[in-house]
Amino acid sequence: MTTLVEELDPNLAGRQLPGDLTTIARHQSAIADHALHAETDPDTGEYAHSIWFLIIALRGMGISVDELCALAEKRESDTLLFGTCGIDQIQPLVVGHTYRTTASIDSVNRRTSKDGSILDSLTVTVTLFDTGAPSEAVGAVTSVYLFKRGQDH
């Protein structure tokens, strides 16, 4: 017997998430560069890899990935996938700096994929501010999280 999750609550759209503070620790930056096959910043030596926007967006929503999954009513049989990701880098991030993030759920959606799977999605935008210069955003990340619904038996 197949059971389906009801469509996501449309009231999730517009919900503000708690946000957070995240520091780009030097050792984590170095390990990330290594794991991502990146050379150390060739310019100033102090800029973090731009993918730290994504790292901070994920860590800086103010809720865990599991909590995000709970909002989407993810079940054991469902799979979390990354749909799209957009990074706006107004200023490069700096190793050792701390960033305050604000976050919100922009929209929720449901569609059926080519193989007949039900795909629910949450679009989340996270905006980053350097705590050393807090008035202007240094960038933003908009991510679409997909929940491929499995079938219960």
Partner: peptide
């Protein structure tokens, strides 16, 4: 995000700077 980072690496290697990327959407 890691695979996306390889694209960022390509851009950084070409431009010589991590500040050259202004926007990327994947």
């Amino acid at each position: 995000g890691s695979t996306m980072a390889y694209i960022v690496n390509m851009i950084t290697a070409w431009t010589g700077s991590r500040s050259a990327l202004k926007r990327i959407k994947c």
